[in-house]
């Protein structure tokens, strides 16, 4: 599954980044395999996605989110 499949409030761990052309900037902001990601629960806007990745709050578009694969953390 990818970040795009997460429901708001869910936490997951990034497992892989499937696209070669993902911008370096996203990696620099902490979007790396092994780091935690949470979809912030606010309003009902689904695109762009409001995320907390590795303690950085950022927003990315749904189409980019599809390229970032994750594994759900059991709660």
């Amino acid at each position: 599954m990818s970040i795009a499949d997460l429901k708001s409030g869910q936490k997951a761990t990034i497992t892989d980044i499937s696209s070669e052309s993902i911008p370096l900037k996203l990696l620099e902001m902490g979007c790396l395999p092994g780091n935690a990601v949470e979809v912030i629960k606010i309003a009902k806007i689904k695109d762009p996605l409001y995320l907390n990745i590795n303690d950085t709050f950022l927003a990315i578009r749904l189409e980019t989110a599809k390229d970032i694969l994750v594994k759900l953390i059991d709660q």
């Binding site: 709050f57 950022l58 927003a59």
Partner: peptide, 11 residues
């Protein structure tokens, strides 16, 4: 080109 959008949400 694929479109990308990354924006930080500062405090």
């Amino acid at each position: 080109q694929k479109t990308y959008f990354v924006v930080e949400m500062p405090n």
